[in-house]
Design a binder for these strands. Structure first.
Lengths: 249, 249
DNA sequence: GGAGCCTATGGCACTCAGTACCCTTCGTAA
DNA sequence: TTACGAAGGGTACTGAGTGCCATAGGCTCC
């Protein structure tokens, strides 16, 4: 039962002990909780165990974390706020680019603390209640992205639907890239797989017809394009070529 | 405290009292629970209240439902099984069509009991723990679709990623259509908004380049196509025209 | 027809998360 | 010095979920 207060080296998060020297109770609790979760697992660790190790009162735990699950995801609340702010300030021409960049904020939060992120990843995979919690967090990110897209697509027929689908696609792609990085133990650059995955999404809608509606510049109606391509060429090459032709003029 | 056992008219689900005449306890519990949820709300109804109204022992509740939330989603387990079976038996050429059809199974389950579905929808919107439960159910559908797609795309570079993104897109679209129907009070045909939403997803990947990889039949390399289109035409029209040209021969 | 058995149900006691309420302490401003 | 507000502690309670055992009803096998 080592009292963990005022110890350094918190696995937990960025904000360590301030210049005052005293570690804030929030950090103390996160540190104690993760020690115990690693030793005995999430479910076999009670809140009483955590506060005992942290050397604080039980009631204090629930002052800092509304539930036992919250202590595992200490930075998501801040990250959600950042994402909202980022999108509100976004001046990106292409809505999809803006939400891809917004998704990268989450990736960077994970990448800022690889060891912590990987520990949490492993924990989350095997504890149902943590999975559930994570789903709700992911859902809030998705709602934030969808809300932004809905505003940007306001007026479009199917705008709300496109917003939902693109938000879901971006989140799925981001998570796919992020999980690849986490499965690999958090070594290397998290941005790489995530960028790759997001590029895939971008290309999907670049290639798709509707991108012309808000993407490439409109061209006069009475004009025509003539396109010649090898018959075996995959459709995306054909589209690429058309788009290039249009862009060149 | 009316005992609800052996009463008819369960709002709940399909399988009413069998030929034996005795309503199965599962149905009795669902009926009692929904009565109370409608009267006092989900959170202010305890499991003790439910079993009291159902006239059964408290322990029996947890034999039929692993948690209080489960009683609100009594048919999802069966529907998930059906979805897996459907996909396993699917012989669809186009993987995306198969998962769209699989998603429609869920819509039909909702549509089979409009009143019950709308009640649940309203309940779920305002109770956080039910929201969380619903997210986990939706996630399981998404995993099922993604699993199928991953197998179908095995070997493709980016196959796993495409599977994730498409599964997420299909689920988002399906839910968008379904929610529109639920918001409208469950009147009219649920299939209509869902089909419309799923068509949107289909078109996204029809228009996108990659559909050629597994979609249209390959054509000889040394041949060419010549395509003429009005310049102002949206890209998906252009692609549609190309595909039509290819298909005609 | 009774012994053995299996399944469905009830009852009880327990753990643990989360909450309401109230108390103490300490630093600070008036 | 007093007043006050923020931070933390303590206690008792509610309610979900679990483990264990007892009971009842129906079944088969002898």
């Amino acid at each position: 039962m080592t009292d963990v207060r005022d110890e350094g080296g918190a696995t937990a998060a960025a904000s360590g002990p301030g210049p005052s020297g005293k570690t804030p109770m929030r950090e103390v609790l996160i540190e104690a909780a993760f020690q115990l979760f690693m030793e005995h697992g999430f479910e076999r660790t009670t809140v009483d165990d955590i506060v005992a190790r942290a050397g604080v009162g039980r009631r204090s735990f629930f002052r800092y974390f509304p539930s036992k699950e919250d202590v595992v995801f200490p930075e998501h609340e801040r990250c959600l706020t950042e994402m909202s702010a980022f999108l509100a300030a976004s001046t990106d021409d292409e809505p999809l680019d803006a939400v891809c960049d917004a998704a990268r904020l989450v990736m960077r939060m994970y990448a800022a603390n690889p060891e912590f992120s990987v520990q949490r990843y492993r924990l989350t995979r095997e504890v149902p209640s943590l999975r559930g919690y994570e789903l709700s967090v992911v859902h809030r990110y998705e709602r934030t992205l969808a809300h932004y897209l809905r505003q940007r697509y306001a007026g479009d027929p199917n705008g709300a639907l496109r917003a939902e689908v693109q938000a879901a696609a971006v989140v799925a792609a981001h998570n796919n890239g992020l999980r690849a990085w986490l499965r690999g133990g958090g070594h290397g650059d998290a941005a790489k797989p995530v960028d790759q995955a997001l590029t895939f999404v971008r290309q999907t809608w670049d290639d798709a017809g509707e991108s012309t509606e808000s993407g490439t510049a409109p061209t006069p109606d009475d004009d025509v394009i003539v396109m010649v391509a090898p018959r075996g060429a995959p459709m995306w090459r054909v589209v690429q070529k058309i788009e290039k032709t249009l862009g060149d003029e």
